[in-house]
Design a protein around this nucleic acid. Structure first.
Lengths: 194, 194
DNA sequence: ACCTGAACACCGTTCAAGT
DNA sequence: ACCTGAACACCGTTCAAGT
């Protein structure tokens, strides 16, 4: 019955899951090691038993976010939407994945999903198109997610009453479809010129 | 001849210019108010006479970076390259502009340049395409710039000896041209289907 | 108009020591 | 195997006070 001092021991998995939940609550800017430790009822230094640095922890979180991306679809647009939605599933998810991308962990998983879909649709230069779509999706999702947060915080640009997220889905689809290329033409499109 | 205590007074312009130079040297992660103050030979609190917060200072820097983007070109690809190169002109320039974008300052300038070029080429849905290209360029430039920095720091992904920036120019051009649309067709492209 | 000095509430990280 | 306690070198920001 008495509140024991601290029987709550954790492993890597537990730390990561709590950190991911905290990210969703407070956002990336306020996700400090000390806050995570407090949430785990543990001293900050305890985290360094499980992760060598904050960078490594964040990279792990990014991997978990991109890990839920569905693979194996032959529809490029659906695949791109799957990536976007995985990023949207956690607050600042896009920014986190984008800033961790250079370390080449989960982002290659996302790019592979796109390249697969492009190839199965017979698109030329599938590798380059996959990279381009991933860059577009990451940029787009980061901007949209930031905007959503800025709006809910009441930091408007001055125009007053415009819905900032209006038309962003249209922009997303346009971008993905355009980079994917003319999928109605199988291998070498007949490049019509006026 | 004697080193006077501190006759170096500054205005907003001076602070911003020194901060921008420091950004280029140390990168965004190490650009602290205290470091900027030290560079100006001033106490950290002095910065708050010129800028209300670090956010406001960073937004100003982002504006200066995007302010150098050439306007008025009718070539969409050239305009996109102009934006990318402005971002590349300072260390972490892309990340800075991207993270400040929600506040809607200099990024609208960049998007306007793209929309103008698209319109002058008679592209349909110029507004949406301009937004999509901007999202792509910001995502792409951020990733490339990060990668450059990670490489020079020796943090490889494990593959050993691959040139990571290889083919990125190709991906950039592919993305921009694709989203810009078929510019050889003037107003309503004849949408050929097999 | 522009800056100092001191303070407040934070950071990430290391490391010996505990269990 | 996992954590504490204490320390180190930092942060952004506020505010009275100086010139």
């Amino acid at each position: 019955m008495s509140p024991e001092p601290n029987p709550a021991r954790h492993d890597r998995e537990s730390v990561a899951r709590h950190a991911l939940a905290l990210l969703d609550e407070v956002g990336l800017a306020d996700l400090s090691m000390r806050r995570i430790a407090a949430r785990l009822d543990v001293q900050p230094s305890a985290l360094y038993w499980h992760f060598a640095s904050k960078q490594e922890l964040l990279a792990d979180l990014a991997d978990r976010i991109t890990g839920s991306i569905p693979r194996g679809s032959t529809d490029v647009l659906a695949t791109a939407r799957g990536i976007r939605d995985a990023l949207f599933a956690y607050r600042d998810g896009a920014e986190l994945v984008l800033s961790t991308y250079a370390l080449q962990l989960g982002s290659s998983h996302a790019q592979a999903a796109l390249t697969e879909a492009l190839r199965s649709q017979g698109a030329a230069a599938a590798e380059d198109r996959g990279a381009a779509i991933l860059h577009f999706v990451l940029g787009h999702a980061t901007l949209v997610q930031q905007r959503m947060h800025a709006d809910s915080h009441g930091a408007l640009g001055g125009d007053g009453e415009v819905d900032v997220t209006a038309g962003l889905d249209r922009v997303f689809d346009l971008g993905v479809v355009a980079i994917a290329g003319d999928l109605s033409a199988p291998a070498s499109p007949p490049r019509v010129r006026a």
